[in-house]
């Protein structure tokens, strides 16, 4: 890892994004140092997903800076494809390619973008699959797998090109509690390996365990941020308290 010493891997400064006349992100600042995990919490529609999509340039921002290793990703003079090679993203709905086997899903970018030989790419993919106990699924097609297996494959696919930063967009929202654990275990493993991650989630218990910093978003603004114990267990902002009370009532804390 070669980031500038001391500088954060990812930094957002006054990021602003609107869809039509609706303002979705309002002057969002965020600092993600290398080897740390930042968890975004907040109600649906609070801007978590949009924030992640703005980071890897799936959405154009209206204003602000998205600095990755000190380079502004939002600048059209920087090659978006080249940027995305270093940032992995995992989606809520998996977004696996249904017409490819698990192995091909994982090796596609290695073979086509990074020009790795097929044999080599497949060996690397199988090793990753082994780590997540998915080796026996390598030749299966995504539709044949359970949701948890599909999501773990999607994580492996994103990891296969050795990104420096991983983004997780509510990766467990489509899964039942047992499968949720199998996916979250993978994320915990990644944390142990020192992967830098930004995670949007509704799983507060998980957030408490993995986060170095928790940010609570409401109406496109980061209302409260800090250590997980502070934000999740002793929030000071009224909106955060209200949100967490409702989460608690829903039995999800």
């Amino acid at each position: 890892m070669t980031s500038t010493v001391g500088g954060p891997l990812l930094e957002l400064r006054a990021v602003r994004k609107s869809f039509g006349t609706e303002l979705v992100l309002r002057d969002v600042d965020l600092v993600v140092p290398e080897h740390t995990v930042t968890v975004l919490i907040g109600a649906s529609g609070s801007g978590k997903s949009t924030l992640l999509r703005c980071i890897n340039q799936l959405e154009l921002i209206d204003d602000g800076l998205v600095l990755f290793d000190g380079v502004d990703l939002a600048d059209p003079r920087n090659d978006a494809d080249e940027i995305r090679q270093r940032i992995g993203i995992v989606f809520q709905a998996f977004n696996l390619f249904p017409h490819m086997s698990v192995l091909d899903n994982i090796t596609l970018a290695m073979r086509r973008v990074h020009k790795v030989q097929r044999a080599q790419a497949e060996a690397a993919a199988l090793e990753l699959l082994g780590r997540f106990s998915l080796v026996d699924k390598a030749s299966q097609y995504p539709d044949r797998l359970s949701g948890g297996q599909q999501q773990r494959v999607a994580i492996v696919r994103a990891l296969a090109v050795s990104p420096k930063l991983m983004l997780f967009d509510e990766v467990t929202s489509a899964l039942d509690p047992v499968l949720v654990n199998e996916v979250l275990a993978v994320v915990r493993d990644l944390r142990k390996d020192g992967m830098t991650m930004v995670i949007a989630t509704h799983e507060m218990g998980f957030a408490t365990q993995v986060a170095d910093e928790v940010c609570f978003l409401s109406g496109g603004v980061i209302v409260e941020r800090g250590a997980p114990d502070q934000v999740i267990h002793a929030p000071t902002d009224q909106l955060t308290q209200e949100f967490l009370r409702r989460v608690h009532e829903a039995g999800r804390l």
Binding site: A14, R16, L23, R26, D62, D63, G64, L65, D72, A74, D75, P76, R77
Partner: peptide, 15 residues
């Protein structure tokens, strides 16, 4: 809300 594009945003748009 009083927001106007910042200088780097204007530079990006120009680019």
């Amino acid at each position: 809300d009083g927001w106007r594009p910042s200088e780097h945003e204007l530079a990006r748009r120009a680019a």
